[in-house]
Design a protein around this nucleic acid. Sequence first.
DNA 1: CTCCAGATATACT
DNA 2: GTATATCTGGAGC
Length: 217
Amino acid sequence: MRPRTDAPRLPRDFFDRDVHAVARDLLGAHVSHAGVTVRITEVEAYGGVGDPGAHAFRGRTPRNAVLFERPGSLYVYFTYGMHFCSNLVAGPHGQGAAVLLRGAEVVDGEDLARVRRDAPGKPPVPARDLARGPARLAVSLGLSRPHNGLDTVAPDCPVRVAGRHADPDVPVRTGPRVGVTGPGGDGDSYPWRYWLEGEPTVSAYRPGVLRTRRTQP
DNA sequence: CTCCAGATATACT
DNA sequence: GTATATCTGGAGC
């Protein structure tokens, strides 16, 4: 499938809506950066202050400050000591809500994505795994710390978000978020994960796990 | 498929 | 000071 280069960049109004509406509509959208374009197949909604799974749960901190910037801003954070994940800020300005980009299909610039994803001396990554998973997606697009805070609705922004899910024959499915431990202790009570049915690039579901202590051996 | 170690910025006590 | 994290790749079933 050839990416539509004529699709308009999504405007501020698109992101300035309920975060769940934004999440659903981002499915099928194209995100382009540094020579690679992906088509989003899986996302998660994070509700801002008060959502126990969200980085904004306890309010604004230096790390999550971008979540409280204008909708359409790109929130890239570092986690697990080695991975970057990317979100698009959604909802009213200052609410702290965002949509995590969890899975995508590389539709252009696959060679470049492969340079970023393939490890030297190891078998090549299967095409469907290039951007399957939030950290893999960020690697394929070449997103990391310097891109945190970019305003993707600006015409000159190097990160371009365009198009949206428009195929009524492909249903949107929902389920619990990945890696989030809910208030009850096990699992996430919010079905705020959205994906396109039948897509091979949707990441495998892994329930949130409480890690066992492993300090002093 | 499931289990598990890895490496470190961040936020909380 | 210390527990945790919007995860991944490799090992073993």
